[in-house]
Computed example of a mutant assay.
Amino acid sequence: MDNNKRTVVVTGFGPFGEHTINASWVAVQELKKLGLGNDVDLHVYEVPVEYQTVQSLVPSLWKQYHPQLVVHVGLSGMATTVTLEKCGRNHGYKGLDNCSFCPDSQCCVEGGPDCIDSVIDMDSVCKRVTALGLGVAVSVSKDAGRYLCDFTYYTSLYLSRGRSAFVHVPPLGKPYSGEALGRALQAIIREMLELLSQAEDKINCQHEH
């Protein structure tokens, strides 16, 4: 096993509502083609838009891969930019999923904190990716929308103590192609990994003194 290899898991969502093709999964498949370089083991998963599946699948991904980072990608019909979500929220899940189900408690983790922030500085990722001039606009948000996207993000943040990220993409062709979204994801995740390793270097230095 190559210890220098970092493991990254990236998920996209399956179809829901009028979105028979979910741009998030298309973007993740494009990312898979591009890869994240030789030093990163990339695993991708398509997640069905179902609360109960998310509740079992997300913990199993963390357990199986012990990833450095998990990035969930979702579709927002309202988005016109690629949007980096700063936090996940625990309460307010009233929207029904593909199985016409929503949690009785309307929350992700009973007794969990109301809101969990990612350890990754999304403003910094946004600035760095924007500076690359990929031709894809990137923005930052504090509200992932209280549906499956937000639910998945909170669940992942809770399990990983913040070592997760969530990226919303607009529908295909509004305005970006799947390929452009894949390129943007590649750049975003590279910057996230860079920031994580800088943070770890700092922590390691403190331990040595």
Rank of each mutant, 00 (worst) to 15 (best):
T80F: 10
M78E: 15
D97V: 03
A199D: 09
T155L: 14
P103G: 06
Y158F: 12
S60N: 12
R146V: 06
V58H: 00
F151K: 00
A184R: 06
S76W: 00
I188D: 04
V73S: 07
D104M: 13
R128D: 14
A79R: 09
L148P: 11
P67F: 05
S56I: 13
W62H: 12
G88D: 07
C126M: 00
G162Q: 02
T83I: 11
V136M: 11
Q198E: 11
V70A: 04
S197P: 07
K63N: 14
Q68V: 08
R183P: 08
Q106M: 13
E110T: 14
F151I: 01
V119D: 02
V140S: 09
V73E: 03
G182P: 13
H72K: 01
Y158V: 06
L172K: 04
Q55C: 12
D114M: 13
T80P: 11
R146Y: 01
A144D: 02
H168Q: 10
M122A: 10
L148F: 09
L69I: 05
Y154F: 13
G182V: 07
R146Q: 08
G74N: 01
L132M: 13
G182H: 06
N90A: 11
A180C: 04
V82I: 14
F151H: 09
L196G: 05
R190I: 10
V138N: 03
E194M: 02
Q198R: 01
A184I: 00
M122V: 05
Q55H: 09
S197G: 06
P59N: 01
T155H: 14
L148Y: 09
D123G: 06
L157D: 03
A137L: 14
A184L: 09
G162C: 05
S60C: 09
C102W: 08
Y153D: 10
H168K: 10
E191H: 02
S60P: 13
K142Y: 15
G135W: 04
T130K: 12
A144M: 04
Y153I: 08
L132H: 11
P171E: 09
V125G: 10
L84Q: 04
H72T: 03
V140T: 00
Q106Y: 10
I189P: 06
G92E: 11
L181R: 04
V54I: 12
Q198K: 08
R89P: 05
Y65T: 07
H91D: 15
W62Q: 03
L61S: 05
D121R: 04
G162H: 07
R146H: 13
Y65A: 08
V109S: 00
Q64E: 15
T81F: 13
C87R: 08
Q64Y: 10
C108R: 05
S160P: 01
V58P: 00
V70H: 02
A144C: 12
E179D: 14
D114V: 15
L148R: 02
A184M: 08
Q55R: 13
V167E: 04
Y154T: 03
G74S: 10
F151E: 00
Y65K: 04
T152V: 06
A137V: 13
R89V: 15
D97I: 01
E85K: 03
S164L: 06
L61G: 04
W62K: 07
P175L: 09
S60K: 05
W62N: 01
P170N: 00
E85G: 06
P170D: 02
C102V: 11
L193T: 09
Y154P: 10
K174G: 12
R163Q: 09
P113S: 15
S139T: 12
S139I: 05
F101Q: 13
P103Y: 01
T81E: 12
